Amino acid sequence: MIVLGLTGSIGMGKSTTAGMFEAEGVPVHDSDAAVHKLYEGEAVPIVEEHFPGTAIAGKVDRARLAEAVVGNREALSKLERLIHPLVRRDADRFVEDHRRRGTPLVVLDIPLLFETDGTSRVDKIAVVTAPAHVQRERVLSRPGMTEEKYEKILARQVPDEEKRKRADFVIDTSRGLEPAREAVRDIISQLTKG
């Protein structure tokens, strides 16, 4: 079985691309979805213990948690140390389940693949990219996003150029959905032939 790591900086179209892999029948583990699930279950008491007042009605309130950690490097690092191992464990279970089933290819959608030393967990890496002006336009059109927030997020991410250099596959999402879909199909074909 091949484990493909799918990553890309904010606003590059990674979630849409992950959906394209799923549409082609490739199982995808979505790290962001895993975090959402954890924030409604297993992680609630852990987060509340370390960031009091962030859990409401048995769920982590993402807005309150963001207030507690955004712009505070130490708090954000602490949160990541608490949550990343839980997400990793969930992904490991996903991979093992598909390995037992004999699935030929799975995708781990990991936003911070390079930043969290996730490269050792995958066999190949696909990076989703777009020109900087397209990325900026996409991100700043999101509700609640500010120039300042965007710059802080970018500062914590490995630069796009570096990600592309380290990738086995690069998917440019700025050319439209169909070319991206074709790139996804080509990757699947390359990794599952034989």
Rank of each mutant, 00 (worst) to 15 (best):
T173K: 03
A33K: 12
D186T: 13
V28W: 10
A55Q: 05
E148P: 05
L177D: 10
S77P: 00
M1N: 03
A68F: 00
G71W: 07
E162C: 05
P131E: 12
D123V: 14
E161C: 04
G176V: 07
V106D: 12
I125V: 15
P45I: 01
D160I: 10
K14E: 08
L154D: 05
G102S: 06
D123Q: 11
K14T: 06
K78V: 01
E148F: 00
L79A: 13
I125P: 12
F169T: 02
D61F: 04
E40W: 01
L76D: 01
K152E: 14
P159D: 10
R181Q: 11
A34C: 06
G11R: 08
L4N: 10
N72L: 06
A55C: 01
T173V: 08
E162L: 14
H84D: 12
R175S: 04
L82K: 11
R89H: 05
G8T: 03
K59A: 13
L112T: 03
A18Q: 06
A75M: 09
F169V: 04
L191D: 08
G58E: 05
L112D: 08
P111A: 03
P85V: 00
V122K: 10
E96D: 09
M145L: 03
G13R: 02
I125N: 14
G5H: 09
I46P: 02
F21V: 02
G71A: 06
I125F: 11
I153M: 08
S9R: 06
E22F: 00
P143C: 05
P179V: 04
S141G: 14
A66V: 02
L113G: 03
R101Q: 15
A183Q: 09
G118Q: 11
L76Q: 14
L154G: 02
A167T: 07
S120H: 15
S31Y: 11
L191K: 06
E162V: 15
G11M: 02
G13A: 03
S141M: 11
E151Y: 00
S15H: 03
G8E: 05
V170P: 09
E161R: 15
E42T: 12
R101G: 14
A63Y: 07
T7F: 11
A91V: 03
T7L: 10
E22A: 15
L113Q: 09
D92V: 04
I187W: 12
E137S: 14
H50F: 05
A66E: 03
I188D: 02
R62W: 07
E148K: 07
D92G: 01
P52H: 07
T17K: 01
A75E: 10
R89L: 07
G8F: 01
L112F: 12
G144W: 07
F114I: 04
A167D: 10
T119H: 01
I171E: 02
M12H: 01
V158K: 11
R62S: 06
L177K: 15
S9K: 05
R64I: 02
F21L: 05
